[in-house]
Design a binder for these strands. Structure first.
Lengths: 141, 141
DNA sequence: TATTGTTATACTCTATAACTATA
DNA sequence: TATAGTTATAGAGTATAACAATA
């Protein structure tokens, strides 16, 4: 494949990252279309875990302003996937909670995303895949 | 749909990919804000090379519908970064051309993206970085 | 006073369908 | 007829600023 330049490693890494980003975006879009969601909604389900983030925390996770989260969550509340819960510790904060339907959808989205990634990297051995995970996770902020 | 997890490697890889995707999205947003652009516009400059893609080709590269490209390009034409050129071979197709200003901006954006990636993976040795590039590029479609 | 989530505004991105001009 | 790009439309995402409730 591409044992390309060795003085251009950073440029190569940036290019590889840009490509990976486009591939993941395409995967999110594909899953979204299949499930009648938007790409952003799909990504929201991917960052949600069982813990219940506040609107501010979710904004940070999604990398967008908190004002956007209100709208995105609203539409998913209207469709029955999410609910708001006031934090008893601090009544200013609302926590985002998955409904039963929401949890089922979340599982399906994550499984489909994992399938897409699996298909993309099917050519790698188990060891190489573990190595890739390690390298990607290295020196995380 | 697919063979489930052997261990948790696939889940881990998917999680790592989702994280990398969010990080790159954040990087694009940050560069965009710094330069007074949108995230999409920034990504457009990152996929543009010296070759001059048609609107359809650019739509494929960006992973969006061709109808969107018209608007995105329009706004960048209005700001003096891009121009349209009718393909003499087939007068139906328009090719997107970088102006001088556009080429300068493209270089700056790619450099800033590369800087961001470099900073993120500063903890990796040169060898590990080359390995990462190789693993990411493996078995590409 | 500071913070959390919301609303208002204005603009951009998005997909679908219908249109035009070329082929 | 088929294709490339455009326009029209409607909805969703985006950031900024101003606001209400709570701390």
């Amino acid at each position: 494949m591409s044992t390309k330049l060795e003085g251009m490693a950073d440029r190569d890494l940036a290019g590889a990252m840009a490509l990976v980003h486009r591939e993941s975006s395409a995967l999110y879009s594909e899953i979204a279309r299949r499930l009648g969601l938007t790409s952003q909604q799909t990504q929201l389900f991917c960052v949600l875990s069982r813990e219940q983030p506040s609107f501010g925390e979710l904004a940070t996770m999604l990398g967008c302003d908190k004002t956007n989260v209100t709208g995105i969550v609203d539409r998913l509340v209207r469709r029955g996937y999410l609910a708001r819960e006031t934090d008893p510790q601090d009544r200013r904060v609302s926590r985002i909670v998955l409904t039963g339907e929401g949890e089922a959808l979340r599982r399906r989205i994550r499984a489909e995303f994992a399938d897409g990634v699996e298909e993309r990297y099917a050519g790698l051995s188990t060891e190489d895949r573990a190595l890739l995970v390690r390298l990607l996770g290295a020196a995380k902020p």
